[in-house]
Design a protein around this nucleic acid. Sequence first.
DNA 1: TTGAAACGGCACGTGCCGTGCCATTTTCAG
DNA 2: CTGAAAATGGCACGGCACGTGCCGTTTCAA
Lengths: 212, 212
Amino acid sequence: MSTRHVPFHYSGGMTDHRTPRAAERTEAIMRTTLELAQEVGYTKLSIEAVAARAGVGKHTIYRRWPSKGALFLDSLLSLNETDFDYPDTGDIAADLREQIYAAVDLLGQPPVGPLYQALLGEAQHNPAVAADLNERFITPQAEKTVARLEKARDQGQLSPDFDLGMAMDILSGPLYFRVLITHQPLTHDYVDRMLDALFTGMGPSPETGAGM
Amino acid sequence: MSTRHVPFHYSGGMTDHRTPRAAERTEAIMRTTLELAQEVGYTKLSIEAVAARAGVGKHTIYRRWPSKGALFLDSLLSLNETDFDYPDTGDIAADLREQIYAAVDLLGQPPVGPLYQALLGEAQHNPAVAADLNERFITPQAEKTVARLEKARDQGQLSPDFDLGMAMDILSGPLYFRVLITHQPLTHDYVDRMLDALFTGMGPSPETGAGM
DNA sequence: TTGAAACGGCACGTGCCGTGCCATTTTCAG
DNA sequence: CTGAAAATGGCACGGCACGTGCCGTTTCAA
């Protein structure tokens, strides 16, 4: 939308400022943002305080990011240089489990967990943040998931009737529900139970039910 | 926690103030809150503006609610006098579908949808709101869902292996994921696809797979 | 080397917060 | 019915963070 704040958001790449001094500033600001967010919480985080602690003028922040939410999004994503990459041992259930373990271990507990939760909260009030988060994190992750599942389906490890377009929603939904709604911890045991339930399915069991 | 703000929150019941005049005030404040939230959005909603439009002093609001979030929660829940009640036609798949249609039609689109979304965003920053929302809305709904599913399982309409403790997360998760993360509309078609996927399950289909 | 851009520091007006005070109205116990 | 107690509307206050100017300095690119 705006051309004024191109340097970071919408750019995909991190830390690509022209001059090393500018990049230094940018990184210092983001580092301070995460620091302060952990100390006082996202709600009480103020750009004024970030500027003060980072030793920069407020303009220097406002020149780079259009809002506190955008700054926070960039700061948080800058931690995630290495995306989650799917293992492929040939066993889809095991690979999914490992993959989700990794995601849950990073995003579901301190120090990143609470920050990620706050970011998702902010995304509910700020459509630009929501769109950016989707573009830079959620969608790429979804695509990797679907790709891995397609391969498994072709190998007969998944029901050919299973709607892959729903896969990301169904695999991620329960995790996000637990974090954002019921606010309970994301344990490996929970992941196991979720995957068991999803593989079992809700339909009456084949040997018992009405299936012909 | 606090005893100062008993009248509403934590009380379950709505509008039970001692005197009719106080109840009038309370309802006027909540009505105005929803009005303003629809007009300017939850973020820009201010207690100052609510007080002004409702024609009450700010004290009158602060005496009743400890925060903007708590006020908003009460205001929104006051619309939901009639809980969702599960139909029971004997067909669990059909009943679930109807139930979820109703929920989605109310909570997934204007006028309530955006307000509910904002409330969930606020809940990420305000633990008291999150707890209250769970206690007064999410948990009761989950209990109804599980009760209906237990009956269906006993009638052989659900796989006896299906983990009912996961039912709410698995049925609701994808819907919340779609609203809070990918921010796409909740259509009946989406509900249908979700239920199909959940009943199908991810495991290899019985007739094809490795099951004996 | 020189002009432009970015910068830190400071100040300003604005909006809303949460609270105190006051005069009035309403409620309720005696 | 009456008087004390509580709730209320109105107003004002200090506090904080916002977002934006301006100014003198530093950094960068041509």
